[in-house]
Design a protein around this nucleic acid. Structure first.
Lengths: 248, 248
DNA sequence: ACATCGTAGATTGTTGACAATCTACAAAGA
DNA sequence: TCTTTGTAGATTGTCAACAATCTACGATGT
């Protein structure tokens, strides 16, 4: 590191690690990951404003790298910029979410098709273990436990498909979907048993090596998720969120 | 504009236009579009290095906005950065291109499904007009005329599908595919008649409102394009490009 | 009381300068 | 001749300062 008036010396044990880190990562990529983490963790809600100077000060750096990270995250669809007014966490409307679900369905269908053709017993076993834990969460009606399992399941599928470009596109789309009202999305315990059942059918199709079936089941699974979201919105109406109020 | 020591006064007629432009667009977005244009126009070949200071000087601005544009284009998949060495136009290998074709196939299939359900006579007429011009290019074996028609056709389909998120994803993926050896891709006159025929079948399916057929035909059309690329590579082997040499 | 105007403070957009790293090339040694 | 070392120039990474714009709020006039 060079010219670091605000950083005290670091113990040698950390020093080499920090050295290696800074050797290949520049500040803007660190900032980018940190902001992304805060958004996905829910610390930054959709519609929230990000202050350049404040963020830079928090991280002990200047505004340049922060601005670069902003541009990358804007392109990734997580932020949007209003000139001379600032950058904000993107808000995804229900209409946009509906559209993104259709993109996700297409990508997941392709993931299913490829994964069914390439899956090996070891990977199949891992998927079944996830489903086993899903059943447990389902019996306990434990939505907080189910949510990460759902992510793990689809993430594992994306890996099995063995197509890095496809997996990267899938991840970006899912990230965008998470910008739709984080707090109400898929936190409904009622849908867990149905969703688990669909997951199980998908794995069964893959065990049989039935690519066409896996493709169709995954497509329908995504579109069913969308339908379940709409259903949940109708039954639990108009609990307006902070982000939604700020938008209005 | 403020503090412009290197820009002479502008005639009043232009002034208001420039004023309105700068009112909503910041420099980094202008730089971003300019670089994107140069890449898509082939002025910047895959593997080429972009010099921050040089680009900034060419456009009469400082390096800050240029760096911001770099980060956005990096996220968009058009550039990649090697720390302390610079940014380069991304090179897409044949293996990557194969993967991206599978992503494109999934997206186009979805476009086909949706477009078949939503297309109106006016849009159908426009597609048929494109195909008519394709036949003309096919008879004349005019690859230079066919290439933009192909883009226009698929672009029109993406519009008909009526899903902005899907169209945006489609465009990014196609842009990435164009980074695979621009000079050899799809410039082969032999494939024009076959490709035109496939396009025609797709439009026919949409005219019938057969979503499932349109979906399948578009999927196969993309995968056939991939196969035709491989075929062309085998028959016209190892004409190594400047970009490929630099990569080695 | 209400609307309009104007000013002060805060925030973003852009710049130029400095530090760190890389690259090319020449000098020194085997 | 070949390899290694070292140095100068070029290029990237980061920073701090300045300019332009926006926002909030009070003064002014009706």
């Amino acid at each position: 590191m060079r010219r670091t008036p605000n950083k005290r010396p670091v113990p040698a044990s950390e020093a080499s690690a920090a050295f290696e880190l800074l050797r290949q990562e520049s500040l803007n990529s660190l900032v980018q990951r940190e902001i992304e983490r805060r958004i996905l963790a829910g610390e930054l809600m959709p519609g929230a404003k990000l202050n350049e100077a404040l963020l830079a000060a928090e991280m002990g750096i200047s505004r340049g790298p922060v601005r670069e990270a902003f541009r990358a995250l804007e392109q990734a669809g997580l932020l949007y910029t209003e000139k001379n007014r600032g950058v904000f966490v993107r808000q995804v409307s229900l209409e946009e979410a509906d559209e993104i679900f259709e993109v996700r369905a297409a990508l997941e269908a392709q993931i299913g098709r490829l994964a069914a053709a390439r899956i090996v017993p070891e990977q199949l076993q891992r998927l079944r273990s996830v489903i086993k834990r899903m059943h447990a969460a389902s019996r306990g009606r434990d939505a907080d436990a189910y949510f990460p399992l759902n992510i793990e399941f689809h993430e594992a599928l994306a890996e099995v498909a063995g197509n890095r470009a496809l997996a990267a596109n899938y991840r970006r789309v899912v990230n965008e979907l998470n910008l739709y009202r984080r707090e109400t999305l898929a936190r409904n315990a009622d849908i867990i048993p149905v969703s688990t059942q669909e997951h199980e059918a998908i794995v069964d199709a893959m065990a049989k090596g039935d690519a066409a079936l896996a493709e169709r089941l995954l497509y329908e699974h995504v579109m069913n998720s969308r339908a379940r979201l709409h259903l949940a919105l109708e039954s639990a109406p108009a609990r307006r969120t902070k982000a939604a109020r700020e938008a209005a």
